[in-house]
């Protein structure tokens, strides 16, 4: 019976559950969401695709002509690519609702503007 008091108090208080898809909790500063590439800064060194533990980053082409393909379905948001990037071209955003039914839609391509 030692929980009775707390139980009675809780009965008349607002639940703590967040009605998730309708209300969202703001994510904190420094949250590791979907990484994005800034192709103006990218020098195409390929380090990000080399260090990626889950093979989520693919380099197409070489050097300054390269493109980056990011397969977000493989990404595990460790942010090692952000850390390894010598030009700080990669940033982790606060985007986290990335689930879906179609893998082909989970490919983010980063092309250079010529």
């Amino acid at each position: 019976m030692s929980l009775l008091k707390e139980a009675l108090q809780r009965l008349f208080r607002k639940p703590v559950t967040l009605k998730y898809p309708f209300e969202k909790r703001p994510v904190p500063e420094g949250f590791r969401g979907r990484p994005v590439w800034d192709m103006r800064k990218c020098i195409g060194c390929g380090l990000c695709s080399n260090v990626c533990p889950s093979g989520a980053i693919e380099m197409v082409g070489k050097g300054l002509q390269s493109e980056i393909k990011h397969y977000v379905d493989r990404c595990m948001f460790c942010s090692q690519c952000v850390e390894s990037c010598p030009r700080n071209a990669i940033k982790m955003t606060q985007e986290y609702e990335l689930a879906g039914f179609d893998r082909s839609k989970m490919l983010y391509e980063y092309k250079r503007e010529i």
Partner: peptide, 21 residues
Amino acid sequence: RDREVVMDLFETLSGNRVHYA
């Protein structure tokens, strides 16, 4: 419910609730 406090701290400290890296 009370454990959420720690999870939120992790999110603030490391950027993720479970895999802190």
